[in-house]
């Protein structure tokens, strides 16, 4: 690790835990997807989750904003316990932004309308303010000139950046990324990763499911390896890439590196 990167990481000191998972278990029917997941993510921490297909990575982060329901254990986001109370879910979703593999932009709305919809409907922001903020965010992800196009008219990388701007428009404290680059062509991956790196440096708490090891090495504070629904190994990027301990981790890394 270079000196420069060190100082950068120090500049966003990891704060007290903002996401706490305690013995989380989840089943799809009889299939045990998440097994005793215990995990704490601090404020401003960047966590990368890796693991083979079907290991439950997506399910884990989807539980964190209640797109999936867990059956056992506790998930506490920013001090709010995830339960069946609709009010808690609503306020947790306001804290968490999510970016999907397939972008999931709303194809019938323009880029700008995609971004201002939730702030206006959920946060009751006036249109002018919402549009101003949307333009700032588009500036930040580097595509202000696309504001009035429809998603179908953009490239994959541009669409994913719009999706990031859309999630940021709600002013979340935490961002979840579920394989944000795996539906993209190689030359577009970089533009999305650059936006994510910038976001990480600005102090956003992030959980990123990805197979981009370069990104993990450069940005992650911690890497989590999951297999068959459980966390097999966690550690710093150096730990993982220099000296992985578990056989399955070694096997997995040897396959993707």
């Amino acid at each position: 690790m270079t000196e420069e990167q060190k100082t950068q990481q120090d500049s966003h000191q990891i704060g007290p835990p903002i996401i706490i998972c305690n013995k989380v278990n989840k089943w799809f029917g009889d299939f045990h997807v998440l097994k005793d997941i215990t995990l704490e993510v601090g404020e401003r921490e960047v966590v990368v989750v890796i693991g083979p297909s079907g290991s439950g990575k997506s399910t884990l982060i989807r539980c964190m904003n209640r797109l999936e329901e867990h059956q056992e254990g506790d998930i506490i986001i920013d001090g709010i316990r995830m339960g069946n109370d609709i009010r808690n879910i609503a306020s947790i979703r306001r804290e968490i932004g999510m970016v999907f593999q397939q972008f999931n932009l709303f194809p019938h709305l323009t880029v700008l309308q995609n971004i201002i919809l939730a702030p206006m409907q959920v946060r009751r922001m006036p249109r002018a303010a919402a549009e101003k903020r949307a333009m700032e965010l588009l500036e930040r992800v580097g595509i202000p000139e696309q504001a009035n196009k429809y998603p179908g008219q953009l490239s994959g990388g541009q669409q994913q950046r719009v999706a990031i701007a859309r999630a940021l428009a709600m002013g979340p404290k935490i961002m979840l990324f579920d394989e944000p680059t795996s539906a993209l062509d190689p030359e577009m991956i970089k533009e999305v990763l650059d936006v994510m790196k910038e976001l990480a440096r600005s102090g956003m708490t992030m959980i990123v499911v990805t197979h981009e090891m370069g990104f993990a090495r450069e940005v992650a504070d911690r890497v989590i390896f999951m297999d068959s629904g459980r966390i097999v190994e966690t550690g710093t990027p150096e730990h993982f890439f220099v000296n992985p301990q578990h056989d399955r981790t070694k096997l997995f890394l040897s396959q993707i590196l």
Partner: peptide, 22 residues
């Protein structure tokens, strides 16, 4: 696609809002 409603839910839109707008 179900992803549409999921993305909207993740943004905090309520069920009625998702139906009406998405």
């Amino acid at each position: 696609p179900p992803g549409q409603a999921e993305a909207a839910r993740a943004l905090g839109l309520s069920g009625w809002q998702i139906t009406m707008f998405i």
